[in-house]
Nucleic acid binder design. Structure first.
Length: 616
RNA sequence: GGUCCAGUAGCUCAGGGGAUAGAGCAACAGCCUUCUAAGCUGUGGGUCGUAGGUUCGAUUCCUACCUGGAUCACCA
């Protein structure tokens, strides 16, 4: 990256011109704004205290120095404290020749062998997935791709919450009211069937609480003493005691759910390297707790329950094991964290979990520290914001959720409808058309979710269906398809461009090679038009965007970058002739540029888990 | 009440110690005999929640306050 080179050069410049030492970080280096002449801009305001001269003079002196020392810089001009540098065309053309069609563009390697464990999805098996889970899954999967592009060894992990009181609720409701219903007999998708009983339980439970309250109980008392909840709790105890009937039914119902989940995951296009089940891991957490108790790190209360205390941290205390010996959420999370740490010796363990659980993860980290476990320091909670509806938060219990399967189906149908009404698939075979509808529908959904900063809450209005125009997935996909169409047309017309799908043999070490490619691809240097130059500058940024997205764990950075690139490309496409251009050298050059842009669009969208169509 | 997160155009969102704060949607006006109009161009729309502070410079950093959300469970 030329930025670092220029920064370093600045340090030397300041040393030689002003006899001062500065660190490179204080130098602001950015892409020049579009309406100002130049490629890169350095803000020199921070340097005037070293130069002891006016911003303009400082910028001019530094500009002279840099232009003299760095052959890549053609010229510069100064506006107030902004030093705008213009690179030589040679610089840009060499970049293009070297990186266009390189499969490694935007990918880097890390020598560090320790893996990153990335947990996401982590569903409960008592209900189907909803829009909140979609955000989780899309974020998690995209992050795994981004981290891999940054050279990390990523292990995608799913921890299924398949035990606990909430599971027992649907289990119990099914025992009570199910009447032997199955996915086959009801025609319902397995996870939806199980979810039906969870909702039923909550409904009946709420009813019972209301009845009890009419007898003078407080809501809290009623919630505790209702028959339904005590019976569900009894089921949990029987489960932990491995009662064969309970276990059998639990297996059956979870099986239904997994079938449903698998279908949803497939359609979402996410996957995992390993799936953990809380029912397998929770016992390990219990062991940790008992071990901690023995070592006098934890406390047992009179009723037998076990707690962790946080002395001066303002967090009070937290239950780790109930009086009856059954475990809670925290118990098993302690266990899985430690287990995972031993299994992978990871660099980092990232948990993609909603921001409603920041407190939980704070406690988890501190509890592990108190237990003296080094895994504590590798834990990072990537807390993302909720998806809100116009009426507010989604609640499974109250049925105010946007179901994942329904939403995906709706996206597909909308994509089909829109595409057909535009007459885009009139000449498509049925099969290809169906794939396209899926590509577009899912592209719209994924982009809609991933373009917003993960940590922020976002709004989804079901009444206004997700757009296909403007800053959307389909818009980007469309631009890609248009580029491919252009390349096909060129090939048909016999234009001898290097085929982007067959990367050239790369002997990148040898500079002479790059130079010959440059001369074979590129027209006379003076012919770069504004739109071309803007695209090249954006392409040049791509690797650093990927890097930044990896550091900040934010797919949104990629999404917004691609959008910028696509907008720029569309301007180029609209205003600058490619195939209609007379000069053959320029035609080839513009085709190469287009293919490169298409490549980066495909790569970037790939990092979001979004496919891109050859035609649409 | 404590803690955390957020408040930028009518709506959904970018941006971020520096140049006139950007997109999309919605509204209006143009551009298809020419590389795909799911596109491009233009117009209107902002005291960047409020008040202080730090700074050559604050929408960006700090503090207080206001508003919204989350959380402080023997739910997960």
């Amino acid at each position: 990256m030329i930025g670092n080179k220029i920064r370093d050069c600045y340090v030397t410049a300041v040393r030689e011109l002003y006899k001062q030492e500065i660190s490179p970080e204080i130098i602001g280096f950015e892409k020049t704004k579009r309406d100002i002449d130049g490629d890169f801009t350095v803000v020199v305001f921070p340097l005037i205290r070293y130069s002891r001269k006016s911003p303009e003079v400082t910028a001019t002196e530094l500009g002279d120095w840099l232009t003299d020392k760095l052959p890549e810089i053609l010229k510069f001009h100064v506006i107030k404290g902004f030093l705008n540098l213009t690179m030589t065309e040679e610089f840009w053309l060499e970049f293009l020749a070297k990186e266009a069609f390189s499969n490694e563009f935007g990918r880097s390697r890390k020598p560090d062998a320790a893996p990153i464990v990335l947990e996401y999805s982590s569903p409960n098996t008592n209900k189907p997935l909803h829009l909140g889970h979609i955000r989780n899954n899309l974020l998690g999967y995209s992050l795994s791709l981004i981290l891999e592009a940054n050279g990390y060894d990523v292990r995608k992990v799913n921890l299924v919450n398949d035990r606990g009181i909430h599971i027992c609720k649907s289990l119990f409701a099914y025992m009570k009211w199910g009447g032997g219903e199955t996915p086959e007999s009801s025609g319902m998708k397995g996870d939806h069937l199980v979810g039906k009983y969870y909702v039923l339980f909550e409904k009946e439970y709420k009813k019972e609480i209301c009845e009890l309250m009419t007898t003078g109980m407080t809501e809290e008392e009623a919630a505790k003493s209702a028959d339904l909840i005590t019976e569900a709790q009894e089921i949990l105890r029987q489960w932990e005691a491995k009662d064969p009937d309970i276990i059998r039914l639990w297996r059956t119902m979870n099986g239904w759910t997994y079938e449903g989940f698998t279908a949803t995951y497939d359609r979402l296009g996410v996957e995992f390297d390993k799936v953990y089940y809380e029912s397998d891991t929770y016992l390990f957490g219990k062991e940790l707790v008992y071990e901690g108790l023995e070592n006098r790190l934890l406390e047992r209360k009179a009723d037998g329950s076990i707690w962790v205390r946080f002395p001066d941290e303002g967090l009070d205390e937290k239950l780790l094991l109930r009086a009856d010996g059954t475990s809670v959420y925290m118990t098993q999370d302690l266990g899985t964290a430690e287990q995972r740490y031993e299994e992978y010796s990871p660099l980092k363990m990232i948990y993609v979990v909603g921001n409603e659980q920041v407190y939980h993860f704070d406690v988890l980290k501190r509890a592990l520290r108190i237990l003296g476990k080094p895994s504590a320091e590798t834990i990072y909670h990537l807390s993302y914001g909720m998806v809100e509806l116009p009426e507010g938060k989604m609640k499974s219990r109250e049925g105010t959720v946007v179901d994942a399967d329904d939403l995906m189906e709706e996206m597909y149908r909308t994509a089909e409808e829109t595409t057909r009404s535009l007459g885009k698939v009139d000449d498509f075979p049925e099969e290809e058309a169906n794939v396209l509808f899926d590509t577009i529908g899912m592209g719209a959904l994924k982009y809609f979710i991933l373009k917003v900063d993960p940590k922020k809450n976002m709004l989804f209005d079901p009444k206004e269906s997700i757009d296909f125009n403007g800053n959307t997935g389909p818009f980007i996909q469309y631009t890609y398809a248009r580029i491919q169409s252009l390349l096909r047309k060129a090939a048909d017309a016999g234009s001898a461009i290097p085929d982007p799908r067959y990367p050239k043999p790369c002997h990148c070490e040898e500079r002479s090679d790059a130079a010959t490619e440059t001369s074979s691809l590129v027209p006379r240097p003076s012919s770069l038009v504004l739109q071309e130059r803007e695209i090249i500058k954006l392409l040049y940024q791509y690797p650093s965007i990927v890097e930044q997205a990896g550091e900040e764990l934010s797919p949104a950075l990629i999404a917004n970058y691609i959008y910028e690139l696509v907008k720029e490309y569309n301007q180029f496409y609209q205003e600058v002739p490619v195939l209609r251009e007379e000069d053959r050298g320029i035609v080839i050059f513009r085709l190469v540029l287009s293919a490169f842009a298409g490549d980066v669009i495909r790569k970037g969208m790939g990092l979001l888990g979004i496919r891109v169509p050859e035609r649409m």
